[in-house]
Design a binder for these strands. Structure first.
Lengths: 299, 299
DNA sequence: TAAAAATACTCCATAGGTATTTTAT
DNA sequence: ATAAAATACCTATGGAGTATTTTTA
């Protein structure tokens, strides 16, 4: 089970000698020799230079070492995951997220996750991108969800989704079927926005600031603290708003809400999952990651 | 070699029956039964519901199926890669890249790649992000390098680096030690830029356009078609320029060039490697990807 | 020449084969 | 009733052990 030959190969590399590996694995040294010979016969390449004091890897050995580690890791993860099928998964997961993702997207994911894994403890730390990246790199967090660019050689990043804020109005609004509109014209409309400090509001204000504009110019501001309430008010044609595209995709398809095209503003950002490179993720972390990938808020 | 039991399990799932799998693998049906029983004993879980017409996977079977595929894929890749160590790698790699990456970053990578793998054919298609994404998703390209956000469920994306354009001047320039500067002030300086159509120029003009500004306002424009020449002119204090940060990192560290902080403009983008999901990359593609990850232009 | 790896030889566990029975619908 | 899977039983391969020789710096 689980490819004893590859495990032996890993032990030999780790120990630097067949004899020491034999002691570590509690089998005889000739058994080790045989297993390595079998691998060398299978791959038709010498894997080890036999030196007087221990061994050294050949180029083929180096390639196999990399693959052997990944293969054995998968075997381990498979066992662990199948073993965890019966019985609750226990343990703690430490997640880092930026404000936008942590407050806006994660609550529903964490709800589902806690339902399915009631015996786990979840620690969510909301910080800015730089802090999340640093904490993941330092090993203080199991994974992170960030949207900004960052530089850190210890981090492996995988794109989750792109998020885009769009301007919307009711289908009865006078801008409902308008062609492209500039920001000055749009700013004369009544705006309904999330409160200051909300993720969405922050994305919007940051983009305005980057474009050299001032959000205080917005007219007759109505503030609400839920996306749903804002959508309802916009649908009632009380005003317009800026909102994450994926939260209104259905309403737009049904014709209840309309998107207002504003070409001069870029409100897109890429949500990324980040992990510490070369670290084996815990079972519970892998579960969380796979739930995020499947969750509808990230599709 | 290569875990016959897992291969048998995959064949059984593929065929939907032990008997059919036995025929496909040219071994007896009881042999298949035994191998599956061994797996079930190892993992202490039933893997298959035995139905009258063929089999169905249990939850544990589904988990193992996923891992078995990944494990067998790694075994295949290991064999292929070790086999390729002696003798040139042959074949064709079709790479898609955006203008910015394809013209600006890839040439040096492709140079090295062709040196190390002279027997390969490289097809580089330079298109916009949307086209590259679509062609990779359609299977017409082996991989893609893009910098923009995109939406496509068939695509797996992995961050490569973040690229940032910065404004620079000579250390003798009057802005060399200035604090934050707004764009209007900066635009009164002599600008030295790449020609229209260059990747860097396009990033810059796009960002200006997004910020509602006009690049034609730039004063006394000098145009050159190489980054090196621009760096030399800026160092000679002939003017200022906007340039990819990583191409001047050394000169800034040595104090030859200075970065001019302009807070109102965001010139960052994330370079991403993209692949078609659930497709096994060819050996040559994997080699190219690993060379890109290691190449200094992406660090 | 001394430590480490390879070989020689024996033994037994296990994987595979054929023939047959049991199971599930 | 019948197709498919499980079991019984036999054989042979190969992996592990001990004892010993060969290799390498």
């Amino acid at each position: 089970m689980m490819d004893e030959k590859l495990k032996t190969f890993l032990a030999v590399v780790r120990c630097g000698s067949l004899t020491r590996a034999a002691k570590e694995l509690f089998i005889s040294q000739p058994a080790i020799t045989m297993q390595i010979h079998k691998l060398e016969k299978d791959y038709k390449e010498t894997l080890l230079y036999r030196r007087e004091r221990g061994i050294e890897l050949t180029p083929a050995g180096k390639v196999l070492l990399d693959y052997a580690r990944r293969i054995i890791r998968l075997y381990d993860e498979a066992s662990e995951e199948i073993g965890a099928l019966s019985g609750d998964i226990r343990g703690t997961i430490r997640i880092g997220a930026t404000f936008t993702i942590g407050e806006y997207f994660l609550p529903s994911v964490l709800g589902h996750f806690k339902d399915e894994h009631p015996a786990t403890d979840i620690i969510l730390e909301i910080e800015n991108t730089r802090r999340v990246v640093d904490e993941v790199a330092a090993g203080n967090l199991d994974c992170g969800l960030v949207e900004g660019p960052f530089e850190n050689g210890l981090i492996y990043a995988e794109k989750l989704i792109d998020d885009e804020l769009i301007f919307i109005c009711s289908s009865k609004h006078k801008l409902a079927n308008a062609p492209e509109i500039d920001l000055e014209t749009l700013f004369t409309e009544n705006f309904i926005l999330r409160e200051s400090g909300s993720g969405t509001r922050k994305v919007f204000e940051d983009a305005l600031k980057k474009a050299g504009l001032d959000s205080t110019k917005l007219k007759d501001l109505i503030q609400l603290n839920t996306t749903q309430a804002i959508k309802s008010l916009v649908a009632e044609n009380i005003g317009v708003t800026v909102i994450s595209e994926r939260t209104v995709r259905n309403e737009i398809q049904q014709g209840i809400l309309k998107s207002i095209p504003v070409p001069s503003l870029d409100l897109r950002r890429t949500f990324q999952f980040i992990f510490k490179k070369d670290i084996q993720l815990s079972l519970i972390t892998r579960r969380f990651v796979s739930q995020c990938r499947q969750n509808s808020v990230f599709r």
